[in-house]
Simulated scan of single mutants.
Amino acid sequence: MAGMKGLKKQRRIQIVILAFVALGIAAGLIGYAFKDGINYFRDPSQILAEPPAPNEVFRIGGLVAEGSIERGQSETVRFVVTDGAQSVPVVFTGILPDLFSENQGMIGTGVYVDGVFQASEILAKHDESYMPKEVLDSLKDDGLYKDPNAADETGS
């Protein structure tokens, strides 16, 4: 019967080793995804200064330029994102968020190919509490951001 016990122990060791290997692979994939900059943020000036690789997924943020929204025949929408200094054309197919409009903040996730940001996801940002700090800082730097709370101190 001694042989049976040895086999069970060996099997247990194999399972433990396998679990560690699987854990290592999972951690590696997660690390690789982050290294790949899944949520790496850029504003239009940064994109034009150093164009990302066509296969790099990142986030773009800024204001939707006035008069730039073009709705096509299908669900494809074209518009321009600006940070005040530079602008990047964006193309997106899908349903835009309700709050999406001109002169409003937005964040897009996607890739930059041939001078056009091809968005897979668009988020509208209205309220300062939703706007990522990076977007806010770059808009403040460019003097585009107006604090909604600062303007109305009169107490209407």
Rank of each mutant, 00 (worst) to 15 (best):
S129C: 11
I17F: 11
Q46M: 05
Q46I: 02
S45L: 11
P44M: 03
G72C: 10
A53I: 06
P52G: 03
S156Q: 07
A49S: 14
I107Q: 06
M4R: 11
Q104I: 05
V21I: 15
A119G: 03
D36P: 00
K125F: 05
L144M: 04
L144N: 03
V64W: 06
Q104M: 04
G72P: 05
H126M: 12
I95V: 15
F58A: 02
I38L: 06
G110M: 03
V113C: 07
V64R: 07
V77A: 09
S74C: 04
L63D: 03
G143K: 01
F34V: 11
I95Q: 13
K5R: 08
N103R: 07
P54L: 09
V111Y: 01
G3Y: 08
G37C: 00
I17H: 08
L63C: 04
V116L: 07
D137C: 05
M1R: 06
P148S: 03
T76H: 11
F79E: 13
P44F: 11
E66R: 12
F100E: 06
G3H: 10
A150T: 14
I17N: 12
S129N: 14
G143E: 09
K140L: 08
T82F: 01
L23I: 04
A85R: 12
P54E: 10
I60Q: 03
L7H: 09
S74T: 15
Q86L: 07
D147N: 10
V80L: 05
L18A: 15
Q73L: 14
P44A: 01
D137N: 10
P89W: 14
A53C: 02
G3N: 08
G105L: 01
S68R: 01
G105R: 06
N39E: 00
Q118G: 03
E66T: 12
G28P: 02
G155S: 07
V91T: 12
Y130Q: 07
L99W: 12
S138Y: 15
V90K: 02
A119H: 10
L144R: 04
I38N: 03
A53D: 12
V77E: 08
I17L: 14
V21D: 08
I95A: 09
V16H: 10
A151P: 02
Y112G: 00
A53F: 10
G72W: 11
I122A: 02
F100V: 04
K140I: 14
V64Q: 07
D141M: 13
M4S: 13
E56T: 13
Q118E: 15
G115S: 07
F100D: 05
G94E: 07
S45G: 04
A65S: 14
L48N: 11
E70M: 13
D141A: 14
P51Y: 12
K8V: 15
T109P: 00
S45H: 06
V81Q: 01
T82M: 03
S156Y: 09
G24H: 10
